[in-house]
Amino acid sequence: MVTDKCGTAHRQPGCLRLTGPNPDDPVEIDANCLDDPADLKALKTCVEFCRAIGNSPALRPFMKRELVPGPVDDSGLETFIRNATVSHSHQTCTAKMGRDAMSVVDHDLRVYGLDHLRIADGSVLPRVTTGNTMAPYVVIGERAGEFLKATHRLGP
């Protein structure tokens, strides 16, 4: 947890680090996944539920044994979850738009503290949408286009 300037505790965000001075040097990414104990608890419940279904009498004739995660204790299950969990599709909220200490971009998609840099993707969403993320991404892109046209006096 980190504490903002108002004294409010927030989950420690992930971070990106440059690994060298060249533009081709890889970027080190630490997403800080599963930092919140509630996330790990929810994934344990999910894996245990799936294991119960897979090992149920109704499905037993179709399997020889459980391969993954296999016979593990609570600690082994946590290790399995931490090693097997990946993030794909619909990444959002990593460069939050807003005015608080955890925000990365302002309402015009400009990155705080950097000149001439805007972010125009799903990362600027302050919260994950409850539906498919494509529609908000399109709106963000369209708004970015409007901001750039106005800033650089382009188009009609």
Results as ranks from 00 to 15, higher is better:
Pro71Ser: 15
Met97Leu: 07
Pro69Lys: 08
Asp106Thr: 14
His88Leu: 15
Leu77Thr: 02
Asp36Ile: 04
Glu48His: 12
Leu67Glu: 11
Ala58Arg: 09
Leu59Glu: 04
Ala95Val: 09
Gly76Leu: 03
Asn83Ile: 11
Ala38Arg: 15
Met63Asn: 06
Phe49Cys: 08
Leu67Cys: 13
Val86Ser: 12
Phe62Pro: 00
Pro57Trp: 05
Asp39His: 02
Ala42Phe: 08
Val72Cys: 03
His88Asn: 14
Asp36Asn: 07
Phe62Asn: 08
Asp108His: 14
Leu109Lys: 12
Tyr112Phe: 15
Asp73Leu: 04
Gly98His: 02
Ile53Cys: 04
Gly54Glu: 04
Pro69Ser: 03
Gly76Trp: 04
Asp39Tyr: 02
Val104Trp: 05
Asp73Tyr: 04
Glu78Trp: 04
His90Val: 05
Pro69Asn: 02
Val111Phe: 08
Thr79Asp: 01
Lys64Thr: 14
Arg110Asn: 14
Met102Leu: 14
Pro71Ala: 15
Thr94Gly: 07
Ser75Asp: 12
Asp106Gly: 12
Thr85Asn: 08
Thr94Pro: 01
Val86Met: 14
Gly70Lys: 03
Thr92Gln: 10
Asp39Ser: 01
Pro71Ile: 15
Asp100Lys: 05
Glu48Tyr: 00
Phe49Glu: 10
Asn55Trp: 02
Val111Gly: 12
Asp74Cys: 00
Thr45Asn: 05
Met63Asp: 05
Gly70Cys: 06
Ser75Cys: 04
Thr94Met: 07
Gly76Asp: 00
